[in-house]
Amino acid sequence: MSPQNRFTRWITTPVWVFILPSLVLLVLLGLPIFAVFWKSAGTDFFTYALAPTALSALRLSLLTSSLSTLLAVAAGMPLAYILARWKFHGKTALELLVDLPVVLPPSVAGLALLIAFGRQGVFGQWLVPLGISLPFTTAAVVMAQTFVAAPLFVRSAKGGFVEIDPQLEEAAYVEGANELQLFRFVMLPLAWRSLLAGTILTWTRALGEFGATILFAGNLIGKTQTMPLAIYLGLERSLGVALALSVMLVIVSVILLGVLRQLEKKVHNS
């Protein structure tokens, strides 16, 4: 296409039809983030950001979100593989179950976890004789995060496995590969991008989990008070603390997104 043609197309296409609606969304997404940075710049940012409460929340958030992402990947990858490649009765119901937490309000998730795994919960009461009580523990934070975030990984990974050409699968079988070898040497390398995208989503979702955590795990500094909880309580102490913590969470999230996207790009290029 010559520059002349490109110009003609630019002025004849009603580009604003694309640009204006996009701007509405971008303004809505961008301005609040900008405002948080703008407002916190004036306050004693480092005093708040380096406060023991803030650092302990950051440490706990990074630990728990990493653990729940690990759990989601370790258990979610085989599950996604089954859902993508195997045919069996009740598969639709299983897919529905896995998708459910994505649309469920976090408060429902938290209550459900408490009713199921609480000390007097439907299943949790069986753990008491073993000396296990889950609510108010860091393990409960990881469970809440995994509950709401793991489905994002399963969805993404399943999408990656489904896209793979079935002929490759057949070829691998003809070559004498078993299911595990097929997974390891064919599926995994080809679905890499989707798996990484799923990991990004899961990690950031786990990092931001609030509703299910406060219901199931409670709020105790150093044990169950993750960054979103510390922000919620910080808001009630002073806006400065909440803003500093929010800025930290935004920065940590951006770094996570950046690192993982970089990884994704490299894998794609190789």
Partner: peptide, 11 residues
């Protein structure tokens, strides 16, 4: 012995 500091008394 405090296991949690709830955000409101109803919690």
């Amino acid at each position: 012995n405090v296991v949690s500091n709830e955000t409101d008394v109803r919690q």
